[in-house]
Design a protein around this nucleic acid. Structure first.
Lengths: 202, 202
DNA sequence: TCGTTCGTATGACAATGTCACACGAACGAC
DNA sequence: GTCGTTCGTGTGACATTGTCATACGAACGA
């Protein structure tokens, strides 16, 4: 027995899946509503029954990606080990999705989190990440170091993705850059515990 | 007297200028060959007499931007003052162009420097930037710190541009993040002069 | 002076996002 | 069980855009 709601939900899932695959395979240009419909087994106009327009469909992909990344970072919080190594893994998680799914990553950060759903997903990730940062530098400085690490991770991911961080040229890998940052922060945090105030105050 | 070569060169300049303006005003979507031609006072097909296709026209914009940024950083090298403050200004120059011309910046870093001209322009910027970095951390570590600062600057610029680094949320500005980085590097460089090896070795 | 060259204008075409409209089956009320 | 309704879907149509083929026309060189 197939209710109408069930088939509609299945179609919607198929559309999202098709768009996700097409994005990974050929970038944003390859995500055509006609191609999405074809891969999902429906016509070119069917997506408009589920998404206001193409932009909304792509926004759905980014929200899912934000949430999936938030899941990953939240799980990381429970991993045993030194806080510094957890933090390093969290930063590498951000860089990792850019490596595994570059087109999706570019899409995630090509636009502000303009829908409430996207904002909530982004907040989830930020909160999970900040908790891991706080375990290293303390609550008071978690925002500053969190912003710094997120920015750097984003930059490393971006430059890697476009080949501007080629290791032959800079003699250093993205992973090593992350290590530099983490070690510098851990060390500065260890130098003046108590106030937990490394580097320069704003 | 207007020779044919002169008018052609003028048209080409007008096309580049029109494309640049349209990019700043409305982003990549607004850069339509028809709109470019109209603003330049020629027809929609005229650009094909000067550029292989739309992509090449946009590539011209990015090469000019890379070179202009390289000029700026090269000039910075001669500014008197402490090396650390010069370095900070150089990093802020990278972030600055993203603030002044966000669409152009996004375009610059949306693609690898695939033409020889683009690669040369990018190399100019990197070389100028590395010289300023070397004045602070020494020649031996300039590559690692240069890569780190460029990545971080790129990330700050990117997150700022898409609103993901909103100051109300993170309680810190992009400029302050740059300060944190510079101060941390200057301080770690001062801590162990001689080997000039701050933070963790790769 | 005359044929050539080359920048430009125009027509045309395919691809794409989007809307209006029509069909048809699942659905709910009786 | 019947019937009008709802809603997901398919299809035709249109504007926009990148791109190419072709034609025109003025500057150029012999």
């Amino acid at each position: 027995m197939v209710t109408r709601a069930e088939t509609a939900a299945a179609t919607r899932r198929a559309l999202v899946r098709a768009a996700s695959e097409l994005l990974d395979e050929g970038g944003t240009d390859a995500v055509t509503l006609r191609a999405v419909g074809a891969r999902a087994g429906v016509s070119r106009g069917a997506p408009y029954g589920h998404f206001e327009n193409k932009e909304r469909l792509l926004a759905r992909l980014t929200v899912d990606a934000w949430n999936s990344l938030a899941d990953e970072v939240e799980r990381l919080r429970a991993v045993p080990g030194r806080p510094g190594s957890r933090l390093e893994r969290a930063v590498l998680a951000l860089v990792g999705i850019s490596r595994r799914r570059p087109h999706l990553y570019a899409l995630m950060f090509s636009t502000p989190a303009d829908t409430p759903e996207a904002a909530a997903a982004a907040r989830r990730l930020e909160r999970a990440f900040l908790a891991i940062v706080a375990d290293v530098v303390g609550e008071a400085d978690s925002l500053r170091y969190g912003a710094l690490l997120m920015s750097s991770a984003h930059g490393i991911a971006g430059l890697e993705r476009t080949g501007h961080l080629a290791e032959e040229k800079w003699r250093i890998s993205g992973d090593q850059l992350v290590s530099m940052l983490i070690d510098g922060i851990v060390r500065s945090g260890a130098r003046n515990t108590g106030s937990a105030r490394g580097m320069a105050p704003g």
